[in-house]
Design a protein around this nucleic acid. Structure first.
Lengths: 309, 309
DNA sequence: CGGATTGATGCGGACAACGCATGAACACAT
DNA sequence: ATGTGTTCATGCGTTGTCCGCATCAATCCG
């Protein structure tokens, strides 16, 4: 028994209209087509559903039951297809963003609230982690795209988003901080202080090491900690200094810290949108990126030290 | 956009198996057929649902959503068809029986409980009323069949079910009752007592009038009441006597009444199963009638005065 | 008793779906 | 690096299904 949707909706139309001819007009098909469709359905289910005496059509007991069931099935189909369309149009569903903690905490909240205003039925899932885990999420397809540092690989397409300048982070009252609020500090000066580094898995560490290498300074840090917040605590306790991208400063808490621009050279990290190359991007994700690009086009204010790329 | 069930279930099978070839084996169709079915579906919904790189098949975000929805629709179809089959096999649904109050109260309860033991998912609806209303229910198709008195018409087919003998109903201590428990009373004797009749709409009334006419007695009753129970009350109060089919005696309540067989002549009413001629009988109703006929074949005990026809 | 309307059906044509065979891309082993 | 096997896509010919047109039989209406 292999009833088709066409048969069921044909039967439902005929049963509701109690007329083959009228139903045929509604559906814009010929009367003979409906006649056959209903006859086939009856043959397949093995029961008479309609009593047709040439003048009018009425339902048998089985026909009443069949109408109820046919309408259920046809409705399930119609509403399911509509739901799928909504999903495909990006009006419902989920967008999964993999990103670094600093981006998640500082950059994304404004974007998310702007996005949700326009697409209230789309849920936003943030997967935060360090660079490697973030890129892994995208490659595995768990996340639609990432906002992160990192080099373009063959598998990922990178689109520059913002530049995030490194600043010197110093304990309050440190000599290098005494020169004034806007006075810059040089990497070489920083290299002469005890340096507190973040763990090697962090993308920040790689860039800091590169900057010191560029000025021929520094080999080993005075101490290392896994998370940025811990490093901030160590600095506040007076154990040394560090260099961090401006975007992570809000994660340091309200300790006894000051920060100064870093020059000689000016170092920044670029945060990119990274997505799988040559893969169709779900429309929900596309809409999220549209919102992000709109923010950039409007030149929405960013924290000091962070600029649109 | 006109997706077919075949496309949806093909897609669901492929998506679940994550392989066209494996799904093709499961469904006993060729791989090329599935390939085309899925491609057509994708074209119709306007989105790629599966990422096939020659080695393996994985779902896109839209594909995950589409799988969920496709399974919903296919399940709705499968369970709907199964439900319809159950209905057609008479394993679910309703059987509507139109019948007289006495039959409903005395004869049917046993049959219904026997029927429901075997078909627990079939509901039994009893429509009780007087003869005319009962026959009307069947003619209108509201009831599947009737158990009632009445003459066969062209539209209805009657099948004899039971015979229900008239008995004399007397107040306790009445002279006619003094002769002993099994001693019969004659219609002529009854005609000499004040007679309490039921209303003219009742089938009982017609038969009683005919019986009195047969013995050339009685023209007008001493009093008339609509319901059998009321007449019973009047008799118990000593206002007169009446004649009723044995089947209705349980409806009289526990008043101060006695009853005696009526002879000269023996009068009974025949209760028939009445169904619409040349109409297919729903299987649920057929099963109910089967139960009833089984009771008859087993010669299940009936109340005194009632015999299988 | 004709005219009109309704559902069923024979017929021919168009189109869809299927299976077979084959092609192209890729994984894995040698 | 090359060969072998697996997997999905696709061209092709055939089969079968579905549609609309025209027509038929039954019924209702005036």
């Amino acid at each position: 028994m292999d009833t088709t949707l066409r048969q069921l909706s044909a039967y439902a139309a005929v049963a509701r209209a109690a007329s083959f001819t009228a139903a045929a007009a509604q559906l814009h098909v010929s009367q003979s087509s409906l006649s056959r469709a209903v006859a086939d359905l009856e043959r397949q289910v093995g029961a008479q559903l309609l009593e047709r005496d040439t003048r009018n059509v009425q339902l048998t007991a089985a026909g009443v039951e069949a109408l109820r069931i046919a309408e259920q099935i046809v409705n399930a189909h119609r509403s399911g297809m509509k739901e799928l369309q909504r999903f495909l149009l990006g009006e419902s569903g989920t967008v999964a963003v993999a990103t670094l903690p600093s981006v998640a905490a500082v950059l994304l909240p404004g974007v998310i609230s702007g996005f949700r205003e326009r697409r209230p039925r789309v849920a936003v899932q943030i997967m935060d982690g360090l660079e490697q885990s973030v890129l892994g999420r995208v490659l595995a397809g768990d996340a639609d795209f990432a906002i992160t540092t990192g080099e373009p690989s063959g598998q990922l397409e990178h689109r520059p988003l913002v530049r995030d300048r490194f600043v010197a982070v110093l304990p309050e009252g440190h000599p290098l901080a005494e020169r004034g609020e806007q006075e810059a500090v040089g990497w070489e000066e920083l290299a002469r202080e005890p340096f507190l580094a973040v763990g090697r898995e962090s993308s920040v560490r790689r860039l800091v090491d590169a900057a010191f290498a560029q000025v021929d300074a520094r080999t080993a840090p005075a101490a290392e900690a896994g998370s940025v917040a811990t490093v901030g605590g160590l600095v506040a306790a007076g154990l040394g200094v560090t260099a961090l991208p401006a975007l992570v400063l809000p994660l340091l808490g309200a300790g006894a810290l000051v920060h100064r621009p870093l020059t000689g050279p000016v170092v920044d990290r670029r945060l990119d949108i990274a997505l799988r190359a040559r893969r169709p991007l779900p429309l929900t994700a596309q809409h999220f990126l549209d919102t992000l690009q709109a923010f950039r086009a409007e030149e929405r204010p960013l924290p000091p030290g962070v600029t649109w790329a």
